[in-house]
Write a protein that binds this DNA or RNA. Structure first.
Length: 219
DNA sequence: TACCAGGAGAAAA
DNA sequence: TTTTCTCATGGT
């Protein structure tokens, strides 16, 4: 896939930031809580993830050691509000077991991004989007997160093929935005915000009206 | 009542 | 290799 011009991607970013302001995703939660949240938010509304995170915190189980040490049914019970609780209990324990086996967060932070990404993807339950979430928001690596909103919004804008391979889409955004972690962080959050506020409630919103110079016509 | 949410893996075709 | 199914709670 040839790299498109970066200007439209930057224009959309400016438009969304102007419309919605900074989204403050995962501010100051710490890398471990971000990793846990990245698993719990799989196909789940964030408000429900927060309930499960609060359960873990109340139970004193917001650490890799505690999560690995919990019986799976007990962990699942704490995760219940986030949905898919049996599945996520297993995934969380896999992730935490890997984290401990690799020597903890500091050891992982010393790895090159490509290596860290490969290892994350080898953990059962960590797919490309969750790995990207963890790399960007927990380890502050310049890895763009592609999700369903990204495909929908930028597909409507005609900037990408919404059915394109995940890696191809990721490279398109990364080449357009440069290696700026703060921009990638904010951009992903803004895309989600726009997708929720506009594209979902107004399926024919005019191909993401905020990003267009002129309103798109219906049809 | 039906649909959606900050996906991923297994099974089936 | 690609598509479909399953996992599940909570809000709208």
């Amino acid at each position: 896939m040839t790299a498109p011009a970066p200007a439209p991607f930057r224009a959309v970013y400016r438009a969304f930031l102007g419309a919605y302001g900074p989204q403050h995703w995962w501010p100051g939660d710490g890398p471990f809580a971000v990793m846990v949240g990245a698993v719990l938010t799989q196909n789940t509304a964030w408000v429900n993830v927060e309930r499960a995170l609060a359960n873990l915190a109340r139970a004193g189980c917001l650490s890799a050691e505690a999560i690995v040490g919990l019986p799976a049914p007990r962990l699942a019970e704490l995760l219940r509000p986030s949905g898919y609780f049996n599945v996520k209990a297993g995934r969380l324990q896999e992730l935490c077991a890997w984290l401990l086996a690799r020597g903890g967060l500091a050891a992982l932070a010393a790895l090159a991004t490509s290596r860290l990404r490969r290892e994350l993807l080898a953990v059962k339950g960590i797919g490309p989007e969750t790995a990207a979430d963890i790399l960007l928001f927990a380890f502050e690596r310049p890895v763009f997160v592609i999700d369903a909103y990204t495909r929908r919004v930028f597909g409507r804008l005609g900037l990408v093929d919404p059915g394109a391979d995940y890696e191809d889409l990721r490279r398109v955004f990364e080449s357009a935005l440069g290696r700026r972690v703060a921009v990638m962080n904010e951009y992903h959050a803004l895309i989600v915000r726009h997708g929720k506020d506009v594209c979902r409630t107004r399926p024919r919103c005019g191909a993401c009206c905020l990003a267009r110079r002129r309103p798109a016509r219906e049809g």
